[in-house]
Structures are given as C-alpha cells and as structure tokens.
Design a protein around this nucleic acid. Structure first.
Lengths: 196, 196
DNA sequence: GTTTTTATTGATTGATGGCTCAATTAAAAA
DNA sequence: TTTTTAATTGAGCCATCAATCAATAAAAAC
C-alpha cells in the first residue's frame, strides 16, 4: 500500500487522534495503541514517525499552541481600537474552535504534565508570555502601566480558571457566558479607571 | 513490633506521604511503593489499610477537602460583616497552609483525575458547591442576587486560575499578590455597584 | 501458656504498555 | 528488471506496578 508522501498525513492524523483520545479520556494516560487505533494505523507506526510517546505529546501541544496563536493573530489584525484588541484576544479563547471539551481537556492535562516535563513547561511558558503580551497590546493604551499589568494578570487567570471549570462540565459556564464574565470584569475595571 | 492502635497513625502518615509525593512529582502518577516508602512502611501495608490505590487517593482528597472546609468555617465565624466574610473565604484559599506548592499540585492533579473517576468528580463538586455558597453568604447581602451570583462565579474561577498559575511557578503570583488581585476585583465591583 | 488478633513485610503474580525489530509490500529509481 | 527505499505491521521483549499471599512477630485475651 505504500504510497509515497504519507508522513505529513500520518503525523497530522496522529496528532488529531491524540487530541481526541485525551479529550475523551480526560488524561494523558492514553496508550499509543489507543491513539494509533484512532488514527487508523498501528502503534508501531506512531513510534516510527514520532519516536517516543513524549515526543508525540509535545508535538500535539505544539500544535494546539500554534493553532491558538494563529487564531489570535488573525483576530488582532481585525481589531482597530485598543479596546477591540483586548476583546479580540478574549473572544478567541472562547471561540467555538478553542473552547471545546476535547481541547480544554487536553490543555488541562498538559498543564499537569508540565510539572514533570521541562519541555512541556517551556511550551506553556511561551503560551503564557504570548497571552500576556497580546492582552497588553490593547491594555497598555487604556490604563497606566502597573494597572494594565494587573488587569492582564487577572484576565489571564480568569481564562485559565474558566477553562478548568469547563473541564469539569458541571454544566457551568458555556463559552458565551464565560466570555461575558471576563468582558464584564473589563468593563467595570475600565469604567472605574476613567472615573478615577 | 506491633504495638496496637497503629491504624490511625499509619493512615494519617500515608495520606501525608501521598500529598508530599504528589506535590513533588506534580502528578498522581506516584507508585504505592513511593508513597509507602515516604511513610516509612511497606507497600503491602498501604494496601492493607486502604485497599486499592484509588481508595488512598480518594481518602487524600477527602482530607484536603475537609482541611480547607475546616479553615473556612473558622474564618467565617470571625467575619462579622458580609464584606469581611467574603474576604475571609478568599484569604483562606491563599493562606500559608493552603497555598503551598504541594497542596496546589495535589489539587490540580485531582482536577485532572476527576475526569476519569466519578468518585473524585463527586468530591470536587462538593468543593465547588461549598465555595460558592461560602462566597454567597457574604455577597448576597452586598449585591442583587444575579449580580452576586456572577461575582461569586468570577471569584471562584479566579481562585482556580491563580492556583493553576502558581502550580507552574514561573515565579508568578505569590499568595499575597494573588489574594490582592481578587480583592482588587471585588473592590472595583462593589464600588461600581454602589455608584451605578 | 496457649490462642487469638493486629501489625507488618518480602516475595510473587499478573497485567499493562512502551518500545524494538525483523519481515512484508509496493512504489520509485537505476 | 533489479534494486533501493518508504510505509507498514505483528510479534515479542522488558520494565513497571498494583495487588495478593503466606509467613513472622509480638501484643492481648483467655
């Protein structure tokens, strides 16, 4: 069956399978066989293309990170005013594509795994830095520096917190409600600053 | 060596060992031997007292939950005004005892495991409900119901979010800074409500 | 002093799962 | 046509662990 040029297709399929497997199980404790099975190939092939399991997990996380980043860049381009740019960053995090149970479960699982794995921790730091600077790109024009920093910090924590709560899917905040909570916070904060 | 009455001592020691093991590794992926070793006993004894590993993990989580709850009750008793009661709940979550790397790592790990284990999920729901009602016990006197609900929701998410960020210990928010962020949010929100 | 009960462990079992490897297929290159 | 090379896998090795069990030791009960 070997058609040539399978590698990129298989890699993508395996990464997708990894996300959906993690999403369903809710843990990184998924076997290579499970993942490979979902991708329609053997476990041996997964090892062939990715080496160790950890490499596949890293690749998966890098993929999630790059998707989020791409969405962010697109959204930021559309936002003309500083205020709009802040909202853009937030809305990306709660978009259909990002705020899905699978994706969220994967993020959460990676957060935990990052404590063991320096490589994953490095990736998460990249994410945190990017989020912060994306938020600041709008906020620094709206608030004095130290206040802007604080609001960015709080917003970032809120995003993480709402993700976690969504993962437990107690029926709690859906995407729009979650985003609305953050917008509400921002509005209050900005109005307060203007009033002095 | 068998002195009688060892059971409660061993159970406590094993639970403590579980927390510290999880805290150090950052995962629930700790072996029974590792835990037992830290408690100064054999793996067999851990099984003797707790049965399966999952039972030990559940007991550990129940312990964390009960400690947090006890601290909360104490703090709530001291708060006389509604406003003070809200602050009390927050400060407990960021107290020396609760906001420690080990404890936080354990919480985070349990959040993830809860996706697999219905028993753990049930326990986390108890926690979420308690936190919510503890917050509401102060907030409902300060804000109209729906607004109070929203603020409680946001505060809870903020706590979770700050916990997660602490777990990655990028040097980010220490306990006091974290608590201050939430207090700042509350102040703005309450002032806004009074003015608005 | 014998028996029962509690505390405790080393050794073992059984299962799981990551990873390797030799073997197969068929496309592409020579 | 022959040879090389990419794609692919089943079978199996090996390590890790959770869980069990039979055996030991000493306190308590009788």
């Amino acid at each position: 069956m070997p058609k040539i040029g399978m590698e990129p297709l298989r890699r993508k399929a395996l990464i997708d399978a990894t996300i959906s497997a993690i999403g369903e199980r809710g843990t990184l404790d998924v076997t290579m066989s499970e993942i490979a099975g979902r991708a329609g190939v053997s476990a041996a092939l997964a090892h062939h293309y990715f080496g160790a399991k950890e490499d596949l997990l890293q690749a998966t996380m890098r993929y999630l990170l790059s998707e989020l980043n791409a969405d962010c860049r697109t959204a930021l381009k559309l936002g003309t005013t500083p205020r709009a740019r802040v909202s853009a960053v937030i809305s990306v995090n709660f978009s259909e594509k990002q705020f899905r149970p699978e994706t969220i479960a994967a993020w959460l699982a990676f957060y935990v795994e990052a404590q063991k794995s320096p490589a994953l921790r490095r990736l998460l730091k990249v994410y945190a830095r990017r989020l912060h600077s994306n938020l600041m790109s709008g906020l620094s024009a709206l608030l004095p520096r130290s206040e802007a920093e604080r609001v960015a910090e709080t917003t970032a924590a809120l995003i993480d917190g709402l993700y976690i709560r969504r993962a437990l899917k107690d029926g709690v905040p859906d995407a729009t409600t979650a985003a609305a909570l953050i917008e509400d916070y921002l509005e209050t904060k900005l109005a307060d600053a203007k009033a002095g």
